[in-house]
Simulated assay, not measured.
Amino acid sequence: MTGQPAITLVRGDITEQDADAVVNAANSSLLGGGGVDGAIHRRGGPEILQDCRRLRASRHGAGLPTGQAVATTAGRLPARWVIHTVGPVHSTTEDRGALLASCYRESLRVADELGACTVAFPAISTGVYRWPMDDAARIAVETVRGTRAAVEEVRFVLFDDRAYQAFARQLE
């Protein structure tokens, strides 16, 4: 059955989430990086990188396009899968909000394909990609609320109080 997933907020570390799938704010290479991406690869172990290399060798030779999503094993994480999505870099001269929304929609689509009931998301693009937290929270919550999915729970896992409060304001 598809409907609207319940939305919960957690202040914490996404690599510690016991969920069917955790979403990785990846870079297009899929080969690891900093921030959430680096943390997921470090904690999940080499199995995630091996799956990412297989994706690069097959259908994503040029890398994963911004706004798209693919899944791999979760390796040593307490989740079953990692859904990798590439968020857009924030721009003050170009509206890239549709690309950020696509990250959430496409991740939910992949979660549905996997049969995931719980999905944990970080605040995509708010780190090194400099997306303003309040706007990122608005786009994330509006997109999840507006996306029909079989996923039962979307959990936004927010690393600090500032991010948690921005998402909490959007849920009010």
Rank of each mutant, 00 (worst) to 15 (best):
G115E: 08
G3V: 07
T85W: 04
A26Q: 01
V128T: 13
A101N: 08
T93Y: 06
H41E: 12
D135Y: 04
I48V: 12
W81R: 13
Y164S: 01
V86Y: 09
S28F: 01
S102I: 00
R96A: 12
T2G: 06
L55H: 10
Q50K: 15
A150S: 15
G115T: 08
D135Q: 14
T72L: 12
A137N: 10
Y164T: 06
A149S: 15
G45P: 12
R59H: 04
A74I: 03
H90V: 08
D95T: 13
S102M: 03
A39C: 11
D13A: 05
V10L: 13
E47N: 10
A149M: 12
E113I: 02
A111P: 05
G75T: 03
V128L: 15
G35D: 03
F159D: 00
A163M: 15
P65F: 11
T72F: 05
E106R: 14
D135M: 12
A19C: 14
G35W: 09
R148T: 03
I7H: 09
L31P: 01
A166E: 14
A166D: 12
E94G: 01
T143V: 04
N24S: 12
F167D: 00
I7C: 04
I7K: 14
L55S: 09
V144N: 06
T73F: 00
A163S: 15
H60R: 11
S28L: 08
G45V: 11
N24F: 03
S107M: 10
A116D: 10
A136T: 10
R138C: 00
R155L: 10
R59V: 05
D37H: 09
R59S: 06
A101M: 05
S29T: 15
D37A: 03
G35Y: 08
G97M: 05
I40D: 00
L171E: 07
V157S: 01
A140D: 02
V23R: 05
E113T: 08
T73W: 11
D18G: 04
V22D: 00
C52P: 03
A62M: 11
Q4H: 14
G35Q: 06
Y129L: 02
L49W: 03
L49Q: 03
L114T: 05
T8D: 14
R148A: 09
G127L: 11
Q170I: 06
P5W: 09
V86G: 05
D134K: 13
Q4C: 01
M133G: 07
T143H: 03
L100D: 02
V70M: 07
D95A: 11
S58V: 13
Q170S: 01
E153M: 11
Q17K: 14
R43F: 06
G61Q: 13
R109V: 07
V154S: 01
S102E: 09
V154Q: 02
I48N: 08
A6K: 15
